[in-house]
Design a protein around this nucleic acid. Structure first.
Lengths: 212, 212
DNA sequence: TGATTTATTGGTCACGTACTCAATAACATT
DNA sequence: AATGTTATTGAGTACGTGACCAATAAATCA
């Protein structure tokens, strides 16, 4: 990809270089796993010497953590966009319908793998752990916000949006847990569960958040 | 632990040695993580040279996979014992009550970590992957068996035990996914969910599978 | 234009891993 | 008691990792 002859130096503004390092690390982490996010791997990807990446990230843990946050933050904004400050965005039910449609696609598989990856790796890497906790709470907060909006608009009936969001996320994360193993063996009962749980939590009839 | 002077050799029957290697690997994997299951680590634990472990497991992947199966198999038998061939064991509802009580305890945390660990690692290690798939299906089958028994006995009402078991396991695995990260931040809504899902799936009133 | 800062290079270091293989010693068999 | 089998050792290779540091060249500033 990015290759140039040896010795030829390209000097960039620190902010720009740092940003492209994190972006590359996020891409590697998302597609190949966070343990592939190493100084050498990212450097190769950028056509740069490992020492340079080490210069921006003296501790490799920080790079892995930022890679995770970068990838999941982008994904969250794609799945559950923050509602516009004022005026009329899409209806909460519409937002959720779109959300459940998107996470059913195979494009979401890499994201499932990334979360699984990060949650396990957090056992050993405290810096990553903090980032994962922050993202988990952010996703929950974002989802709870949609529920709150929908309840205010009379679309949903939900006494405790935060707890309901947490439970829907349990279903989503539980269903995506098998992504590397027996997912296809039990596809049918598993895949439909998150949407069903959401409908139950929001007091909606079965199928209300379904496609079409 | 097991230490003896250098050079002193203890020669054991292959079956016995192999068994103690797997048992040690299972213990290390359960308490410290499957990436700590290395030839050297297991050898140190046994007071033996790394080459010996390598002799029994020419590929380290196989050792990790067997360590996982050993640990989860023991756990399953502790949580959901296979019913006696004939005669009267405990009632299915009683079995499930006991099950949900046990997985609520902190002793189950290591098991949660192990599953998370194994499911991620399966991404890279095909041998482990097969073992994890087998265990996932076994747990599901075992759970479905209890549901089937309870339905036959008139305790439960469940049209599809296999699918119901799969969904309850989604709730359990989803709830335990946060064990290394934000588990304690959202303990309340998350911890109660598996039992609630089970009660709904089995047509039981809320709290029917609760403690006491 | 000359001086200064610093982004970038290139190399080294110690560590831990799996894997290989010849030599050895404990056991079993005759 | 001698022999054969093999479980076990000990040393070695090759690889990938994070961390460290002096030298260098590109950009900026005086």
């Amino acid at each position: 990809m990015t290759s140039r002859g040896p010795g030829k130096r390209v000097r960039k503004a620190p902010a720009e270089r740092r940003h492209e390092i994190v972006a590359t690390a996020a891409r590697v982490g998302l597609t190949e796993g966070l343990e592939c996010v190493t100084l050498r791997r990212v450097a190769d990807e950028l056509g740069v010497r490992p020492g340079l990446v080490g210069h921006y990230f003296p501790a490799a843990d920080a790079l892995v953590a930022e890679a995770f946050t970068g990838a999941t933050m982008a994904e969250l904004d794609g799945l559950l966009p923050e509602p516009p400050a004022e005026g009329d965005g899409p209806t909460p039910a519409g937002v959720l319908r779109r959300f459940f449609t998107l996470i059913s696609g195979t494009e979401f598989d890499d994201v499932s793998r990334l979360w699984l990856n990060a949650r396990h790796l957090s056992r050993y890497r405290p810096v990553l752990r903090e980032h994962v906790v922050a993202q988990e709470l952010l996703w929950c907060r974002r989802f709870a916000g949609v529920i709150t909006d929908g309840t205010a608009a009379g679309e949903f009936s939900c006494p405790n949006p935060w707890a309901a969001a947490a439970r829907v996320l349990v279903a989503i994360d539980g269903a995506s847990t098998y992504i590397n193993t027996s997912a296809e063996h039990r596809a049918e009962p598993i895949a439909t569960m998150p949407r069903t749980v959401a409908e139950a939590e929001l007091g909606l009839p079965a199928g209300a958040l379904g496609p079409g």
